[in-house]
Design a protein around this nucleic acid. Structure first.
Length: 298
DNA sequence: GGCACGTCTAGGGAGTAACT
DNA sequence: AGTTACTCCCTAGACGTGCC
């Protein structure tokens, strides 16, 4: 058994696609296929069901995937600790960030980290902002960019980076939604809303509606801020996004801030890390960069 | 020389779009 | 609806390379 085979299997389980997984492992599909086959032969059971069009994990494959991740994680930890003792920080830091967080938050941290620890491999996983904290809790990643929730899980530590107000945005173009907003006092019960799914912002706006006794009209939901911006710019409704996201977005010219909207508590954005992983040299090194970057940018 | 592991290439199964 | 051509995907075989 070798760690290379395990890495290939984990990559394949994540992509469920031989070609994509082999590309990510920097191998030809052929060599990759045989590596997986060898692993299956070694284990004496199939981990995957191959079809001519798709690949699925068998029950054994799903069970083995969790083990494989654990083994690789322990291996990385051991490597990282030995590396620190010998000659500095080495290993891999796994980061989860939404696409917008990549250019607004990671853009500040990664150059600093890269400069200090060129030997560390950086693995960035992207997805919806609401997926970040679960990824940290499941230890799929070491750190995740999150908006600090009102209640933070006890096993998680939060390293703040910046604070940003939540702003309501409306379409820039003339449309039915714009006309609803232009007629003096806004009737918030009638305005179609595009809201984020499963995020602190959602809790805050719903709390405000409850307090005001308003039943909102939720036209759409999105798991990412860029999707909200896109829907708003197309005239679908009024959205709620962090100001930081709006400033950096290529879609910002299609929308505008609703000045007379309710004021919600601002977002505190930063990195979440599981406490038991925070002591790992590579994670510690990354978090030091987070703190230093905050110090530099204020 | 034997072995392990890689690439290159070809083959076969299946989906899809265009055409009749 | 049936046929054809194209494309995608995974796998097997041939062969090259590096190490012992």
């Amino acid at each position: 058994m070798d760690f290379h085979g395990l890495t290939c299997f984990v990559m394949l389980a994540e992509t469920l696609h031989f070609k994509r997984a082999s590309e990510r492992c920097h191998m030809s599909p052929s060599a990759f296929s045989r590596t997986i086959k060898r692993l299956e032969e070694e284990l004496g059971m199939p981990l995957l069901i191959r079809d001519t069009r798709e690949v699925k994990l068998t029950a054994e494959g799903r069970s083995f995937l969790a083990r494989a991740r654990q083994i690789l994680s322990v291996w990385e930890e051991a490597r990282s600790e030995l590396g620190l003792a010998a000659s500095g920080v080495v290993g891999t830091v796994r980061i989860f960030a939404s696409v917008t967080a990549c250019y607004s938050i990671l853009a500040k941290i990664l150059p600093l980290f890269r400069g200090r620890y060129p030997s560390v491999h950086i693995h960035v996983e992207t997805g919806g902002p609401s997926e970040s904290l679960p990824a940290v809790l499941e230890e799929r990643v070491d750190v995740g960019v999150i908006a600090r929730p009102d209640v933070l899980p006890e096993v998680v530590e939060f390293y703040p980076v910046t604070t940003t107000p939540l702003v309501f945005i409306r379409p820039e173009m003339d449309c039915a939604v714009s006309r609803l907003l232009d007629g003096g006092t806004i009737d918030w019960g009638r305005v179609p809303l595009i809201l984020p799914e499963g995020e602190p912002a959602r809790e805050r706006i719903e709390a405000w509606f409850r307090k005001e006794g308003i039943r909102p009209t939720v036209y759409g939901e999105a798991s990412g801020n860029e999707a909200i911006l896109a829907m708003v710019s197309l005239g679908c409704g009024v959205g709620l996004v962090p100001a930081l996201v709006l400033e950096k977005s290529p879609l910002k010219h299609g929308v505008r801030v609703v000045e007379t909207a309710p004021q919600l508590p601002p977002y505190e954005v930063g990195f979440a890390v599981r406490k038991r992983r925070a002591h790992l040299p590579v994670v510690r090194a990354f978090l030091e960069c987070v703190e230093d970057a905050r110090g530099e940018t204020g």
